[in-house]
Design a protein around this nucleic acid. Structure first.
Lengths: 188, 188
DNA sequence: CGACATATTGAGATCCATCAACCAATGTGG
DNA sequence: CCACATTGGTTGATGGATCTCAATATGTCG
């Protein structure tokens, strides 16, 4: 999976100058403070956010509780996938967990660029394929692993999460209560 | 979500004749008997299967148990997503639950067609977007709903599943034991 | 320091898995 | 056409995993 990220990066590097220029031309940098919302619920996700620095998360409300669906670090691409794809109101929020700086690309601008530079369609495809495999893997974990196994998996593959993100958020990301996560940690 | 299927179908219908011919030229029909495997574990998923008729499923083995990950009906596209995308050995099997007839497209042929007809890249993107949203929604269900709620959701949105697929398979698709599913059904 | 967010711990309830016994429908070889 | 195996489903008893509610730390920041 990490390999696929490399493949995407290599693809970008190998783009012709014109296409690269087009990409750069439609991106702009912006900074957010800790706690800021990059995307509100019910807002249409009309931008993608490439994290340059900081930590962010995506979450939604279920029975008044925040359920974290994704955590973003440096070089991750933050969007509400279905809202972005269908250009429909988002169920999800995107929130800065620390001060963050991002590179923003507008949906419209990217669509127009894709129409003019076909290689960007292929790039888009690669992004979506990568996300699809990531979600599939996460579903796999919920389908077959216990809470403890899921936590250990994070500890092993993404220790930076445990070091930087509050347990309350990690618990909701794992689909368990804060108390259960606390007990899992006490036991290992 | 059903709307997106319509959008994809409309996109296909609106393709120019040349592109459409190319698509047809790389597809061929085939029939399988109930119980046949369309894809074996460890095999590289080098084909996509468009179900014309019958029922199939995708599953993998976990601790010797079969975990069903997707059910396919008429007009569904069956592939092991990560195996197809990365052209790596598949964890999953694809099995015919009834006699099925499918339209097969080879990965290589589709890649070559995409290179010659850019509109097919966009079509591929739409397929993957659709699958991504489908998986995201399924993950959402595992993340927040109880077994009973997940079953009721299937009953409501996909009653044909309950009418045609053995409970053993539905249970593994829901991520619960056959006994629990049986009890859920007895209670409602 | 005081206040608010974050984390731990305990007790009881609930959901779900497992193991085991049983039942019904279907199909197959003799 | 019968006897028996196989597949698919139900039901009961028990235990483990996890939730919820509540009380109690432990920060951390103005």
């Amino acid at each position: 999976m990490t390999l696929y990220i490399d493949k995407i990066n290599n693809y970008i590097k190998a783009l012709d100058t014109e296409t690269l220029m087009a990409l750069e031309g439609i991106s702009s940098d912006k900074k957010y403070k800790k706690g800021d919302l990059l995307l509100q619920q019910n807002e249409i996700c009309g931008k993608s956010f490439l994290l340059i620095d900081g930590i962010a998360r995506k979450y939604y409300l279920n029975d008044g509780k925040e359920i974290t669906t994704e955590l973003y670090f440096e070089n991750d691409l933050a969007v509400s996938f279905d809202s972005y794809t269908l250009q429909q109101p988002s169920r999800e929020f995107i929130e800065a967990l620390t001060d963050v700086s991002v590179s923003i690309t507008h949906y419209r601008a990217f669509e127009e660029a894709k129409a003019r530079f076909p290689k960007l369609v292929h790039l888009d495809l690669m992004f979506v394929e990568h996300y699809g495999m990531w979600v599939e893997n996460r579903l796999f974990q919920f389908h077959t692993m216990t809470a403890t196994e899921r936590y250990l998996d994070i500890l092993k593959k993404s220790p930076h999460i445990v070091q930087t993100v509050p347990l309350t958020i990690i618990a909701s990301y794992l689909g368990i209560s804060l108390e259960t996560l606390s007990r899992i940690r006490a036991k290992i």
